[in-house]
């Protein structure tokens, strides 16, 4: 199993370099941007705008790094599957002493690694920002960053079994992205056309009403993130578990992956 993990690491060397470059470039850009409010051209803004700009940049940059690194890491996890199929390594692995379960576990561990790396990157970024400019708004940025890492990781969980199914990384990634965007539009268009009381917006409002009336969302609305974090973690674990079983199901379909004849 470690061998397969190492193999994917070697294959993702370029992507890892891109991720490191992204982190460094965004850190430099973020510091320059934030410093511009103190010492640069942006320092001439009216006091209210200046304060807003400082606070928003301290919130935005830590989660922006999670967004970029999340997308890159999700891509390399899925891309290695396509590379394995194209290079016939997948056939070699089937003829070797690696069980289907181990092949699947490697992919789930890679997803977890990607999540940990993205979360750590957002924390490190936030800490650097915090040390330089104070921690008052950085915490929210880090929290949103970890949340974004979870969301992207959950989408990658859907993409991994799809990559085995379609033998195509781009198709495997675009499917959950299309569903997500389509979902936003499905809710957003009726909202825009008829207002919240009509169309899908109305249906969703009705569905959510019993919970909101019972005060079910109060802990969330009162900004009590102590509740949000475990829920996010549970959702993430459920997605990872789903990724394991859905991928294992695909990996077991050896004949389909290796070609019919």
């Amino acid at each position: 199993m470690i061998g397969l993990y190492k193999k994917d690491l070697y294959l993702s060397k370029k992507m890892l370099l891109i991720m490191i470059s992204t982190f460094v470039l965004l850190l430099v850009f973020g510091i320059l941007w934030r410093s511009a409010y103190d010492y640069g051209n942006l320092a001439s803004f009216p006091p209210e705008d200046l304060e807003y700009g400082k606070r928003s940049s301290e919130k935005t940059f830590p989660f922006l790094i999670a967004l970029l690194l999340g997308c890159e890491s999700a891509f390399f996890t899925v891309n290695t599957i396509e590379m394995d199929i194209k290079s016939k390594f997948v056939m070699y692995a089937y003829s070797g002493p690696v069980s289907d379960q181990d092949k699947t576990k490697v992919k789930v561990y890679e997803l977890l690694t990607a999540f940990v790396v993205c979360s750590l990157a957002t924390v490190v970024y936030g800490l650097i920002f915090g040390i330089l400019y104070g921690f008052s708004d950085v915490g929210i940025g880090i929290l949103i960053g970890i949340g974004i890492s979870v969301v992207i990781n959950c989408m990658a969980c859907i993409s991994v079994p799809l990559a085995y199914k379609h033998k195509n990384a781009a198709r495997a990634i675009s499917t959950p992205v299309a569903v997500l965007i389509g979902g936003f539009y499905a809710i957003g268009i009726p909202e825009a056309l008829f207002g919240a009381e009509d169309g899908l917006g109305r249906i969703i409002s009705k569905l959510v009403a019993p919970i909101t009336k019972a005060g079910g969302f109060k802990p969330w609305l009162s900004n009590n993130w102590v509740w949000i974090v475990p829920i996010i973690l549970i959702v993430h674990v459920l997605f990872l578990a789903w990724a394991y079983f859905a991928t294992l199901r695909q990996v077991k379909r050896r004949e389909r992956i290796c070609g019919a004849s």
Partner: peptide
């Protein structure tokens, strides 16, 4: 097993393949 074409990624080299297969076999 020896296939008609190389089943390893073209970006790898012999040293890396050694490290990978050491952990498999």
């Amino acid at each position: 097993v020896v296939f008609d074409s190389l089943p390893f990624h073209e970006g790898l080299n012999a040293r890396k393949v050694d490290r990978i297969l050491k952990s498999i076999y």
